[in-house]
């Protein structure tokens, strides 16, 4: 009985951290599909989501309002970042754009450090009580919030991509930028939208995970890398794959650190990543795209 309870607790913990990875991976994939670049700023947006929410919580003293405002703000930062750094690049090949996002990430991180400080930031969970116990299974309420909000966001994203004109246009651009521009879809603005959506996903992830883990200015990179790993796991550029990859990575990490060693927690997830990379390079759900030489 005890074993089952532990199992259920681990699954819930794994799914909640996995939801965070899924959101980051989703944002990463959206930008990747449109540019072919690895977006290093993705993790910084997650960090900002947490840091900004914490700062706004000090002003509003309402978690809900702080989370929503911060998320929207991070989304806007994504839009602006694209205009300032990606749009002016003269030769926008994936490699140059990847390097540009490295610069963007460093600037984002240092601005947060300068304006919001180096101290860990945090705030209370979204419910009054931190922990609930159902039939002997102890669960952190924030974990449930994370899973629920992620689900809601995914449903909204699905609706956006499948039902709205803008979402369909974005999909068209990411599938074939040249063809899309031929039918009159402005690919530059779609790129801005992609960055905005990616930042939005990152911002939400940061805002909802911070009550569990606290946040500091230098955590963006690690979070971003976990998101990349999840994206690779699910197949890079594959949106549903990002979700499955994220959840899977969260579960692997949680179970791994419980049953093996929490010291090697990061090593476990990256080892899994390398394993996937070498056994099934296209991820669990993608088609292999090997360089032909």
């Amino acid at each position: 009985m005890d074993g089952t309870n532990t199992l259920v607790q681990l699954v819930i913990a794994g799914l909640s951290i996995g939801s965070i990875y899924a959101l980051i991976a989703l944002g990463f994939n959206i930008v990747f599909k449109c540019t072919g670049a690895m977006n290093f700023a993705q993790g910084e947006w997650v960090m900002m989501g947490g840091m900004v929410t914490a700062a706004l919580f000090g002003v509003f003293s309402s978690v809900g309002l702080a989370v929503v405002t911060a998320t929207v703000l991070i989304g806007a930062i994504g839009l602006v970042s694209e205009r300032i750094t990606i749009w002016p690049v003269r030769r926008p090949d994936p490699m140059t754009l990847t390097l540009v996002t490295v610069g963007l990430a460093i600037v984002s991180r240092s601005l947060v450090m300068i304006f919001l400080g180096k101290m860990p930031a945090g705030y209370s969970g979204f419910s009054g009580t931190d922990v609930i116990s159902i039939e002997g299974v102890t669960v952190q309420t924030q974990s449930l919030w994370i899973i629920a909000i992620t689900l809601l966001f995914l449903v909204l994203m699905h609706f956006f991509f499948e039902r709205t004109v803008l979402g369909k246009a974005l999909r068209a651009v990411s599938a074939d930028p040249q063809a899309a521009s031929l039918v009159g879809i402005p690919s530059s603005q779609m790129l801005m939208l992609a960055f905005g959506l990616a930042a939005l996903a990152g911002g939400i992830a940061g805002a909802i995970v911070t009550p569990l883990t606290l946040m500091t200015y230098d955590q963006g990179a690690t979070l971003g890398f976990k998101g990349f790993s999840a994206a690779m796991l699910g197949g890079i550029g594959n949106l549903p794959g990002a979700v499955v990859g994220g959840l899977l990575l969260g579960l692997i990490e949680t179970f791994g650190s419980f049953y093996i060693s929490s010291h090697f927690k990061d090593a476990i997830s990256f080892a899994v990543l390398l394993l996937i990379l070498f056994m099934r390079p296209a991820g669990l759900f993608g088609r292999v795209e090997v360089v032909k030489a």
Partner: peptide, 26 residues
């Protein structure tokens, strides 16, 4: 294994490798 694949795989693989090395050093 990584260089058989497209560019970003090398980036990811080296990053993961680096992260694992740091854990091992620690």
């Amino acid at each position: 294994p990584a260089l058989r694949l497209h560019g970003h795989y090398l980036a990811m693989a080296t990053l993961g490798f680096n992260a694992i090395l740091v854990v091992l050093f620690n």
